[in-house]
């Protein structure tokens, strides 16, 4: 640069208006949406500002948790009931969704069956477990079986979608090989595709199980089995230290399951994606098969 700044012959650009306008619009939409929502929900400023204090009053009383009382009342068993519900529900979802996924995948299923099965997955995913349970409870009666069915059915939606995506990502070479030997469609799925997708699908199942543990805890709140009922009744009696114990045990179990399941899933994924040496990846896959029991 020289000491005297010579004006350029190129005129300076004006700042682009598009970005700014879009930002302004977004901000405006947020403000309008927010104000409209606040007026819909009967909130006064007083109540709004008072809420954290009110909440804190309650949360304070969760401590110390009444562990002895909780153990006497069998809260641990209730938490485990939630885990059982999630486990069986996940298995039901897995068993129902896997065959359906083959009918939904673009690369293996004909259009006439693919489209309705995909729509079925979407429809199922749209209905929360709680709503499914609301419908099931009059049929099965109150209890864990209603919750299990609700979780199983709802899981079909997500598990089916994920498995479909896994199938659509496979190498179709083995499938061609099966076709070339005169095998049927079922054989192509069983031997050409299933071995390829099984590890990743198993890790999806585990991931769904983690989600389902939380979901089944919630289902108890409407009487579909598990720890939720315990939370509701202790809150009703305003027995806050017992609530603290219920929450504490639930969080502990949820976090433990998350950690274990995530560790297994990491090993599964490591086995699939690490294909550097001919041996490496597969030793991981062996380890995964050992851990999950999904040995083929």
């Amino acid at each position: 640069m020289t000491a005297t700044h010579t004006p350029s012959t190129v005129s300076r650009p004006s700042p682009p208006s598009g970005v700014r306008r879009r930002r302004a619009l977004l901000a405006l939409a947020l403000v309008i949406g927010g104000v409209w929502s606040v007026t819909g929900i009967d909130v006064t400023l007083e109540r709004f500002l008072g809420a954290p204090g009110d909440a804190w009053d309650i949360f304070k009383r969760l401590w110390p948790p009444a562990m002895d009382e909780a153990l006497d009342r069998g809260v641990v068993g209730k938490v485990f009931e939630s885990v059982y519900i999630a486990w069986i529900g996940t298995i039901i979802g897995a068993v129902l969704s896997l065959p359906l996924a083959f009918l939904a995948a673009t690369n293996v299923a004909p259009r006439w069956i693919r489209v309705p099965v995909r729509q079925l997955f979407n429809a199922i995913r749209a209905v929360p477990e709680l709503i499914v349970a609301v419908i099931f409870i009059p049929i099965t009666g109150l209890g864990p079986w209603a919750g299990t069915l609700a979780i199983g059915l709802h899981s079909v939606g997500t598990l089916g979608k994920w498995a479909t995506e896994a199938i659509e990502g496979v190498d179709t070479g083995p499938l061609e090989a099966v076709e070339a030997t005169g095998g049927r469609w079922v054989s192509g799925m069983r031997w050409g595709i299933l071995p390829q997708i099984m590890p990743i699908v198993a890790s999806f199942w585990l991931f769904r199980f983690e989600i389902n543990v939380r979901a089944s805890a919630v289902l108890g709140m409407i009487g579909a089995g598990g720890v939720g009922a315990e939370l509701v009744s202790q809150l009703m009696f305003r027995n806050f230290s017992a609530v603290g114990a219920v929450l504490g045990i639930t969080v502990l179990v949820v976090l433990t399951i998350d950690t274990m399941s995530a560790a297994v899933r990491r090993r599964i994924i490591a086995g699939v994606t690490r294909t550097g040496g001919p041996d490496d990846g597969d030793r991981n896959a062996e380890a995964l098969a050992d851990l999950t029991g999904f040995r083929r």
């Binding site: 819909g40 929900i41 009967d42 909130v43 109540r47 008072g50 809420a51 009110d54 909440a55 009053d57 309650i58 949360f59 709680l130 939380r214 979901a215 805890a217 919630v218 709140m221 939720g228 939370l231 509701v232 809150l235 305003r238 609530v243 929450l247 639930t250 969080v251 949820v254 976090l255 998350d258």
Partner: peptide, 29 residues
């Protein structure tokens, strides 16, 4: 945040309903 996330969403709702009273306000929180 890990602990907050480990508490299922409707547990939060129920706790806050107890704290600030039944209604949309608790749900919002």
């Amino acid at each position: 945040m890990n602990v907050v996330r480990a508490v299922p969403d409707l547990f939060w709702a129920k706790l806050l309903v107890t704290a600030v009273g039944i209604g949309a306000f608790a749900g919002t929180w």
